[in-house]
Structure formats: structure tokens, C-alpha cells
Simulated scan of single mutants.
Amino acid sequence: MKIFLFLAAYLMELTNTSLFYRKSGNGPHPVILLHGFGQEHTVFDSWLTALEANHTVYAFDHYYHGQSTREDSPLSIAQWKHQFEDFLLREDITKFSIVGFSLGGRFALVTTTLFPERINRLILIAPDGIFRSIWFRVATSAPGNPLFKYLMLHPDRFNTLLNVFKQLGITSSAMVRFAQKELQGKDNRKRVYRTWTYFKPIQLPISTVAKVINQHRIQTHLILGTLDTIIPPDKIIPKTTKIRTLETHKLPYKHHHMIEASKTLVPSLLSGEFFD
């Protein structure tokens, strides 16, 4: 009976899961683009002209974003591996590079650990998944998650709490403005809850990721914004020192400007990575 219920649940999840991506270009080198929270694959449109000459570009929508769908439940590493393996088989991809911005950085990191022998180059732009803020730890903890859900359903209470934190100096004015902007509308608040709660299992310790990257000598680039208060460089850089193949680039931009700011840098970092 238990086996039957397990199989039924598994088949139900497969039925309700759709991982959307748009393929463009016809270059010899596949590159995966993974966007940030609240975005869709189209956020990379300004990159395509520079990339398509030498790459076949696969721009994804994360689950709960754009055209990708999934049931409301935690996403395990095994489930993500299964979905991504299906994609690689369908597109007949042997090796690829992967670029992740913000939330996409978390997916890029776990994908790299799952398929290290197939990664040509890893590029992380203001990435999530390297450090866990106190807010993330509280919101996704067993006691904190029900409160997090309640606040997402009652935005007036959440805004009041934010203002209290601001007055007490617990959080910055910039972070308050960011949270209030991102949480406008019921759909956005629902997406925040789903993203933080259901993607928690795929955030690996950076020490684990570093060991895999070093073992396979994966060339890794980290692009950070010196004006970024969402993914501040001083929180990221100390945690990445053990990655021996890492090269760090700093750009004078805020978080939401980083994709546009990186559109000429990323193609240059991808060039020259392939050897016969």
C-alpha cells in the first residue's frame, strides 16, 4: 500500500510539473541562463545578440515563475536532477556552461554539483545560495515558517513589522524598500513564500560546492555589484575563498541592474573556454 501511494504521488508530481525554457541561436556551445526571483527567461533578451553567434542559448523559467509550473511542495535535489537530466537528454547536450543571477545562482550551484563533469564554465551573478540571511533562516525554520506564511497572507501586518525593524535598526531602509516593492500584490507574496519555502532543500553548503568545483577544476566567475544591498559582496567573498578556480569581478551597480550591467562581460568570460 505504501509503495502504491508513493508511486501515485510521484506520478502526480510529474503530471503537474512543467519546466519551461526557450532555445535560441545555433552556436556549437550550449549555455544555460537562469534568472532571478520575480523574473522570467525574457530578462536575458538583451544578451542574445552577443551570445547566439557562438552558443545555443537555453533561457529557463524557474518553477513558480513564467511558464514553469510545479505543485506546492519542497523541491528535492533528486527531483531537480531528474528534471534537468530530462532536459539534457531531450536536447542531446553533453557539456554546457551555466549562468545564474540571484535565485538562478542557487540553481546553478546545485546543478554544477550534480553534473560537474559536464560543466564547461560556471558564472554566478550576485548569486543567492552562498550565504543564508537571518531572515531566510527564520522564515524557513519549523517554528518560523507558519508565521512567514501568515505575514504573506496579511501584508498590512508585514509592513508594520518591517517598519518596526527599520526603526530599531534591525534592517536597512534599502532592504525595507526592496521588500515592500517585491511584495506588492498577492501573486508576488505567494511566489516569495513558495520560493523561500520549497527551494530551501536545494541550497547546499558552499563548502560542498567548493569541493566539487575544485575536484573537477571548473572555471568559475563571480560577478558582484559594489552597490548591491541584497547580495552584498562582503557577505559573499569571504565564503568563496576556498574555490581555487574562482575569478571575482566587481561592477558599480545595484542588484536589479546586474543583468544589464553584465551583458558584455558574460560573453567575454564564456569565450575561449573550449578546447579541442
Rank of each mutant, 00 (worst) to 15 (best):
E91T: 10
D86V: 06
A59H: 03
P74H: 12
E71G: 14
L51I: 12
H55G: 10
A59R: 07
Q83Y: 09
H62Q: 09
L89K: 08
H82L: 10
L75R: 04
S73A: 14
E52F: 06
N54I: 00
D72L: 07
Q83L: 13
I77C: 06
E85C: 01
A50W: 05
T69W: 02
Q67M: 05
A78G: 04
G66I: 03
H55T: 09
A59D: 03
Y58S: 06
L51W: 11
P74Y: 09
D86S: 13
I77W: 02
Y63R: 11
E85P: 00
Q79Y: 09
N54L: 02
L51E: 12
Y64F: 15
F87W: 04
I77G: 03
R90L: 01
T56E: 14
H65E: 03
Y63I: 08
L88T: 01
H62I: 04
F87L: 08
E71D: 14
T56Y: 13
P74G: 10
E91P: 08
D86M: 11
S73L: 11
W80V: 06
S73E: 13
Y58F: 15
Q79C: 09
E85G: 02
V57G: 13
D86L: 13
E52M: 12
L51S: 14
F84R: 07
L88F: 01
A59M: 08
H65V: 01
L75K: 02
Q67N: 10
R90G: 02
A78Q: 09
N54W: 00
L51P: 12
I77E: 11
H82W: 07
Q79R: 15
P74F: 07
E71R: 15
H62T: 07
V57C: 13
A50V: 04
D86C: 10
K81N: 06
Q83P: 01
V57S: 11
Y58Q: 06
S76L: 03
S76A: 03
N54H: 07
A59C: 09
E52H: 13
A50H: 14
Y58E: 06
H82D: 08
E85I: 01
W80H: 15
I77A: 07
H55C: 12
L75P: 01
G66Q: 05
L88E: 02
S76N: 02
P74V: 08
A59Y: 03
Y64T: 11
L89P: 00
Y58G: 06
Q79N: 12
L89H: 07
Q79V: 09
I77Y: 04
G66W: 02
S73D: 07
A53Y: 14
K81D: 05
Y63H: 14
V57E: 14
S68C: 02
